[in-house]
């Protein structure tokens, strides 16, 4: 439930007030941006996704219930925008062999690290999102479920499927983790 200081901009935002929208943008852009970067792992592309997410929020403002949390609503929209970005990036990656989104760090066993990164990139966008947020960024399942607008059980099942798919993919690459 938003506090009273936030209520007025939220009501005005729903009515289409651009000043209120700017206030909300300034207030939430940092959090939303960091959330998007966690998902798509590309700081530059995250700026485009952030603009897209806030634009979608402005267009869909009539659907927003101003008695509820703007941050949670915005995070949900940002997650969908990030998912769309991952889908497009995946289609483009099919045409080009390189993928600069995830830079594998130098490691003692770089071949193994590269294989794991490759297997990760081959996950479907839906599984990639939960794998990133749950396994890499270690975000609480409840937050992930809220952002994806799915039950916690669905998040757990997607994490399980992501691990199973990663293991299969690594086995196909000749690696048994």
């Amino acid at each position: 439930m938003p506090d009273t200081l936030e209520r007025d901009p939220l009501d005005r935002f729903v009515q289409g007030d651009q000043k209120a929208f700017e206030w909300l943008f300034r207030h939430y852009e940092g959090d939303v941006y960091r959330w998007i970067v966690r998902i798509i792992r590309d700081a530059s592309a995250a700026e485009d996704v952030l603009v897209e997410a806030f634009w979608r929020a402005y267009r869909g403002r009539a659907c927003f219930d101003s008695s509820r949390s703007f941050g949670a609503w915005m995070r949900r929209i940002a997650t969908n925008a990030a998912l769309d970005h991952l889908k497009v990036a995946r289609r483009h990656a099919r045409w080009s062999a390189t993928d600069s989104v995830i830079a594998a760090p130098a490691a003692p066993d770089s071949a193994l690290t590269e294989s794991v990164a490759l297997a990760f990139r081959r996950l479907s966008p839906k599984l990639q999102i939960v794998a990133t947020l749950a396994l890499v960024e270690e975000q609480p399942y409840a937050d992930i479920a809220d952002a994806l607008d799915v039950p916690i059980g669905t998040v757990k099942s997607r994490v399980f499927r992501a691990i199973r798919t990663l293991r299969k993919e690594l086995a196909r690459l000749g690696i048994r983790p």
Partner: peptide, 17 residues
Amino acid sequence: LRHLLRTAVQRTAVPSP
């Protein structure tokens, strides 16, 4: 597997746009 994944795909640390 989780450890390998965290090594291959590092956590992000980006403050703001």
